[in-house]
């Protein structure tokens, strides 16, 4: 059973066991426009919840991607280095950014559910 949660910074996190996969939401990808470069964290790097973990660059601007939960980076998505446009094509699937080994599963409870996030985006 995987569980998906969302942040108000428009990241998503999908949890399988103690591994979390993180990316940016469809809304974020649409706001950014055409993604041309993604700077991903290296395996082994420790990040705290809310900490800066990656950078996504569109033609127009650079934006930080924050870790929704803390942990140790397992891997960045190698497909994004080759083809950053995957972030626009499939932001909540193939366009994932990095995987973390979760430090504290309890942090997930502080994040929004899909319904809560959809409601949040509607209000923007």
């Amino acid at each position: 059973m995987s569980e998906v949660r969302f942040t108000d910074q428009h990241e998503w996190v999908r949890v399988d066991g103690d591994e979390a996969t993180i990316g940016i939401t469809k809304y974020a990808a649409e706001q950014l426009g055409d993604v041309v470069f993604v700077d991903l964290p290296e395996a082994g790097r420790k990040v705290g919840a809310g900490g800066e973990a990656a950078v996504v660059e569109s033609v127009k601007a650079a934006s930080e991607v924050y870790a929704p939960v803390g942990g140790e980076v397992v891997a960045g998505n190698p497909a994004l280095t080759e083809d950053p446009a995957k972030v626009n094509a499939d932001p909540e699937g193939e366009g994932w950014f990095f995987k973390l080994k979760l430090a504290d599963k309890g942090e997930l409870a502080k994040l929004m559910t899909k319904d809560q996030y959809d409601e949040f985006v509607k209000g923007l």
Binding site: G33, D34, V36, S58, V59, K60
Partner: peptide, 12 residues
């Protein structure tokens, strides 16, 4: 307008 629905890359 900074961009239209086509997006900056396609417009360029």
């Amino acid at each position: 307008p900074v961009q239209y629905p086509a997006g900056i890359l396609k417009e360029h």
